[in-house]
């Protein structure tokens, strides 16, 4: 009770300070812009999708008519499939859903494992010119369009692509490996697409860690494993979680990489959504699928944050 009182009091201070710092005109303008952004660019589109997801897919003439009522049928379709199907559950779509979530988690974990050592190296080798150069080199590929990057990866991972050529040349394999069918290209593409969103938050927090803390722990006899477990990782946790959140959400919601790099038999859940919107022109059904994906990913993120005791506030840091 007392807490909330304090909280609102604090908020009031922040608001009045905001206006004092920016002046009334500028303050209102900034305030209005943020409000516009929140309402028109985030809230309204999502709400309209939410509304769609609870309606029937009717011919234009009947929209707004007596048949246009709310329904759960779109959500039921994801669970049980169409009325004409013989299966108890809509196993095809549910499998795609579960596979997408698991794959997104794997991509996230893989990115954490890959980025942590890199971020540690970059963050702790204080400001040398070489490190700056490395960071710039990491950014350059991202000047290229996402779709072009995905096609480039497809070329590298193709049957007669660079990777297979090298593997065959080194006699590691005699037959080209079908990276596309094995989904290796897809995971590599997804991992690569969002890796900077993992690297930079991690790099930022690790860079802010006082080197003396590491040396103090070392002076007290701590091994490198313990130093990372007790000092560096706890310090980097907000950065890791914020990176992981972005990578997970964006991987689960990715469309370009699965379209271009996915094997012929493997679908990403977003591709189902896309099909509903684009091929079947059933926006209502697509909206329901998209809502399920959104709510599930948010739930997973919040659960993970709770497990690792990270607050929303820490993430923005």
């Amino acid at each position: 009770m007392n807490e909330t009182v304090k909280h609102t009091a604090k908020k009031k201070v922040i608001f009045s300070e905001f206006f004092r710092n920016n002046g009334a005109v500028m303050g209102s303008l900034l305030f209005g812009l943020v409000g516009f952004w929140l309402i028109f660019l985030i809230l309204l589109p999502q709400l309209s999708m939410l509304d769609y997801s609870f309606r029937y897919n009717l011919p234009p003439a009947e929209v707004g008519g007596p048949k246009d009522v709310y329904t759960l049928s779109n959500y039921q379709h994801l669970l049980y499939g169409s009325d004409t199907s013989h299966q108890r559950y809509n196993s095809v779509d549910l499998k795609v859903f579960v596979r997408t979530i698991i794959a997104a988690i794997m991509v996230t974990v893989f990115n954490i494992l890959l980025c942590y050592p890199l971020a540690y190296f970059l963050g702790q080798s204080k400001g040398s010119g070489f490190v700056r150069l490395l960071v710039v080199l990491l950014i350059i590929p991202y000047w290229i369009n996402e779709i072009l990057r995905a096609f480039a990866l497809r070329i590298i991972f193709g049957d007669s692509g660079l990777l297979n050529d090298v593997l065959i040349f080194l006699h590691i394999t005699s037959e080209p490996i079908d990276f596309i069918r094995q989904d290796i290209a897809l995971y590599a593409g997804l991992g690569y697409a969002y890796i900077l969103l993992m690297l930079f938050p991690m790099y930022n927090v690790i860079e802010s860690l006082d080197r003396n803390q590491i040396e103090a722990a070392r002076d007290m006899g701590a091994s490198w494993v313990r130093i990372h477990r007790r000092i560096v990782i706890p310090h980097a946790k907000p950065g890791i979680v914020s990176g992981a959140t972005m990578v997970f959400m964006l991987s689960a919601g990715a469309l370009a990489a699965p379209q271009i790099l996915g094997g012929p038999s493997s679908l990403w859940f977003t591709q189902l959504v896309y099909q509903w919107f684009n091929d079947s022109l059933n926006w209502q059904q697509g909206a329901a699928y998209a809502m399920v994906l959104l709510v599930s990913t948010i739930t997973i993120v919040l659960t993970v944050m709770r497990i690792f005791k990270v607050n929303m506030g820490d993430i923005g840091k």
Binding site: E215, A216, R218, D219, G221, S223
Partner: peptide, 8 residues
């Protein structure tokens, strides 16, 4: 430093 009998 982790093996020396010093504390800093």
């Amino acid at each position: 430093p982790n093996k020396r009998p010093t504390a800093l």
